[in-house]
């Protein structure tokens, strides 16, 4: 499967100078503020087929996930830390190869915002 060419104007790449203005953020500093009822027995997000990810050149999930659920191990294999998931659905929609099996956490589990 190839990435579909999008309609309309193509995205001009960001200039390196602009990209350099992004501060580094330790995601854990943000995730600690979120309350979860973690379901240790059920991973509601899974990679359907790891071999598909190895064919994925861009691996955008590593970046766009707002809580960095997806990380790559030393071999480049995608690891899923579903415990930090805020159930936004970005990976379900944003995975270019539709390789994320995205389900709802079981009732009463997952994120529970204190402020929202």
């Amino acid at each position: 499967m190839k990435l579909k060419k999008k309609k309309g104007q193509s995205h001009e790449p960001l200039s390196p100078e602009l990209r350099a203005t992004l501060p580094k953020v330790n995601i854990n500093d943000l995730v600690v503020s979120i309350k979860y009822y973690v379901d240790e027995d059920f991973a509601h997000i899974q990679i359907r087929d790891h071999s598909v990810c190895t064919r994925c050149a861009t691996k955008p999930c590593l970046d766009f996930c707002p809580v960095q659920v997806f990380t790559a191990d030393a071999q480049g294999k995608i690891m899923v830390g579903y415990q930090a998931c805020v159930e936004c659905g970005s990976c379900r929609i944003g995975c270019p190869l539709k390789n994320v099996d995205w389900q709802l956490p079981r009732g009463g589990h997952g994120v529970a915002y204190k402020f929202g």
């Binding site: 995205h11 960001l14 992004l22 501060p23 970046d63 270019p96």
Partner: peptide, 21 residues
């Protein structure tokens, strides 16, 4: 748009941190 994060390989929390700064 989610597509912007994807195309530019941007991390949402870094964009937010940049804005806050």
């Amino acid at each position: 748009l989610l597509d912007e994060f994807i195309q530019h390989k941007l991390r949402p929390y870094e964009v937010l941190a940049r804005f806050k700064n």
